[in-house]
């Protein structure tokens, strides 16, 4: 079995217990579970951030490094994954797409943060008052460096709504696409 301690090969944000087999079994003991839960929460957020994942499709990611450690052949069972994501939802770090809880938005940065980032970027690039299509924002070649590059449309709308509520922007549909004007 790979030496449990040697985590040097793994990226920094991997949890300390990543190679600890029981990490993949929902612990019955309350104290152990609270530490297991917090490690899984931060791992999911960090993983999505590193891989720029806006949505977490539980079925797909079951086999990825996130929930499946091939070297020790351990997988986090689906019900436990749901339990962790539910906890993320409670602290508004996630949101289920639909009731059968198969896909969830993961806010590894809260919509408010994204909103202010977008606002200041538009301000710096002097595009205040001009209409920008959502696609431009997420796939435009001048936003490649931004954290929200490639963000999911529906999620982008959620972030822009924050600005709308603050009265700093207005979202409207341009043909079948959607545009936003920020002032």
């Amino acid at each position: 079995m790979a030496n449990l301690k040697d985590k040097s090969a793994l990226p920094a944000y991997y949890p300390e217990f990543y190679t600890f087999p029981p990490f993949y079994t929902r612990q019955p003991n309350a104290a152990s579970w609270s530490s297991q839960l917090s490690q899984w929460r931060s791992f999911i957020l960090a993983y999505c951030r590193a891989h720029k994942l806006w949505r977490l499709n539980l079925a797909d990611t079951m086999e990825t490094d996130l929930f499946y450690n091939k070297s020790i052949n351990r997988k986090l069972p689906l019900p436990t994954i749901r339990e962790v994501v539910d906890d993320l939802v409670k602290s508004s770090n996630a949101e289920w797409l639909s009731s059968e809880k198969s896909i969830a938005y993961i806010y590894w940065r809260t919509p408010e943060d994204f909103a202010s980032q977008i606002y200041s970027w538009i301000d710096e690039t002097g595009q205040k008052g001009t209409v920008l299509t959502l696609l431009e924002l997420t796939e435009g070649d001048n936003t490649t460096q931004q954290e929200w590059y490639g963000m999911d449309q529906t999620m982008l709308v959620k972030c822009l709504n924050v600005l709308v509520k603050k009265g700093q922007a207005q979202v409207f549909s341009v043909g079948d696409d959607k545009g936003v004007k920020v002032w």
Binding site: F20, P21, P22, T25, Q36
Partner: peptide, 14 residues
């Protein structure tokens, strides 16, 4: 901590 994913249930110590 308990590990139930490989045959007989095993117990590990953090």
């Amino acid at each position: 901590w308990v590990d139930e994913q490989e045959g007989e249930t095993s117990y590990w110590a953090p």
